[in-house]
Nucleic acid binder design. Structure first.
Lengths: 207, 207, 207, 207
DNA sequence: TATGAATGAGTATTCATTCAT
DNA sequence: GATGAATGAATACTCATTCAT
């Protein structure tokens, strides 16, 4: 190996290290988030989380500052993804309804495919983090609300209380995490499709 | 002495005692359940629950055996009420859709009016209680599923995966507890009505 | 027992309770302070402190909020006593020297007789408590400094840097805790007497 | 090759290495000792010590076996120096008082000038090291005691309990580390001078 | 019935230390 | 010589639970 190539390697090392570190950190958060969803934030102990990653409890603290930080980051991870989806859908669809359908489908896909889960334990976060998470959630809700209102304006969506509509829709999504298991009888695609249909035209057969 | 007259006798000590005890016990469970919903099972301490009832922590143990028992009973209380509603609706409505609408409306009412809340922390229950609660939840889901299937059979409800449909509907209900506050801008009746409409015909305007 | 006397008892109960509680709390702090002095703040574990009081670790937390609180209160306890001594000596003695001798003697007595000890671990306190303790220490040092300066003014004390003089004197006191054991060969009275003589006229024999 | 020339040979690798190693090792111990004095043994973490030397925590272990070893060596370093001072003063001075004055002045100089500090945390050492340190401290105290007793014998020092006298004197020295900052308002020389005066003739003005 | 006092079991967290590279 | 990563052991602290009164 020439000195030059060795030098390059040495230059790459720190980047590799950092990349590795970040990858592992994300793995910790994802794995912990899954445990939180399955067993609840308090029922999932750090020991348990560590073991499921083949690490020891103390090693977790090399990647995260505290258990609460994991919870916080797990929340943020989802909201980042949702922000992305909101943006991705922005230019598409004509009517408010079409836009809403696209976004709602993406949300359902995210939850079934990407292993991301909407966590509900917000009270376990400290004041500041709690506020941040509520803000991020609010941002998503407002994005959806805007689509609903746009739909009401262009007559693609029925007039109703927009807030209640949005909560109705988001509730169904939240509950998804409780019952859906990847690799189960029904595919994520099918669920996303049915969710979009259900929220659009409901369960009733038109007469 | 007839049962009716017994009911009226305030001076009937033994009975009174028991009635009082039971009333207080229910109050403990209701109050605790509210705290669990608001703050989460683990974040709500026994001290906190006691204080909000004007009691001391130790006094709670006169009414309940353990914190877990409270959680269990709080679950059961809701499922008892839901069973009741399922029964109450049984004779009513013609089509599956109509029956489903009636029941769903009743469920929404229960959550907004009666101070009852669907708790999600099942993992904090011990094996036996967990199983019991899951059975009770399953029973409700099956009751709803039956109505959905009946509706599909009598063509009042669109063909689709019944399970997914039910989870979609139940999810929206579960989320209600997170955002709805009694005495807020929107009345429980209005919410119930909109929820029923939404689940029936969706958000899309027919073209 | 008459109802009246019973009533009186009931009235006394809370006071007794509170008095008992406070007494026990002080016992906890005193005992812990002794352990801190002997073994150092970090080497003395809560378990150890509890055991030496015939309690369990968790019981300590009924009386104090945290280990740090104990350290803080132990500091304050001493400074309260020293403030008292400063006040008690105020009217006595004519010259600055006489006043200083009286106060210094009292300080030495306090350390040998009352089981109070000057703790040095200030860095283990959080910012706020640290500041408070430093303020209290400063207050005592200033009181002593004033006497020294008064003595220099009335010519009972030799001119020199007052600060250094005070630190010299306080240092000897602080070290007392390290080597003096109650019930040892020398009585506290003798030590106090010799300390006063030593600081006044030094070790040198006048020629 | 003579020992002298060996000393001078900068290119003598193995020796150089060892000298460098030892120099670095001493730097580690000195820096750590300073941190121990400022923040306390337990409050000063290995990470912190390493950082202040521009090293990483793990690198420290190339120079020392354990944190406790640092504490031990830091103690020993001071006692070695004090032994040296005791020896240096041995031939000088006539009376016990004169000898004591010389030694005490040297001690004060050492603490203000040389960056050496008397550490008090002995309990954090293991049994064997603890014993060693106590022995070394005892040796110094005995050396001082001998001078005091010699002074009492030759009438240059007042009769009193020699032990108490020594502890009084050593206490003032120990406390020096707490309040003296190099480069402060008062020079080390001035402090040494005043300390010697204070211990000799006290604060009182002869009348 | 109710409470103050006490406990046991559990949990997050820290930190000195090790080791492969 | 030096470091990033990982560990084990210890420790403060919390909280549901108990019990004598």
């Amino acid at each position: 190996m020439s000195v030059t190539s060795q030098h390059k390697l040495a230059e790459n090392r720190p980047f590799d290290r950092e990349a590795q570190y970040n990858a592992k950190r994300r793995a910790v958060i994802r794995s912990a988030a899954a445990a939180f969803r399955r067993r609840g934030y308090h029922n999932a102990s750090m020991t348990e989380i560590a073991k499921s990653l083949g690490l020891t409890k103390a090693a977790l603290y090399y990647y995260v500052k505290s258990k609460e930080e994991i919870l916080f980051e797990a929340h943020i991870m989802v909201y980042d993804k949702m922000d992305e989806l909101v943006k991705a859908v922005r230019g598409q669809g004509d009517t408010g309804l079409e836009k809403l359908q696209l976004l709602y489908g993406e949300f359902a896909h995210m939850l079934t495919r990407d292993g991301l889960a909407l966590l509900t334990d917000i009270d376990s976060l400290n004041g500041e983090n709690q506020e941040t998470v509520l803000k991020r959630r609010g941002k998503i809700e407002r994005a959806v609300t805007r689509l609903v209102e746009k739909g009401m304006a262009d007559d693609s969506i029925k007039k109703a209380d927009a807030k209640v509509t949005v909560f109705f829709l988001m509730g169904a999504l939240n509950w998804l995490n409780v019952w859906y298991e990847a690799g189960g009888r029904i595919s994520g695609d099918d669920i996303a499709q049915q969710f979009v249909a259900q929220m659009s035209v409901g369960v009733a057969n038109p007469t």
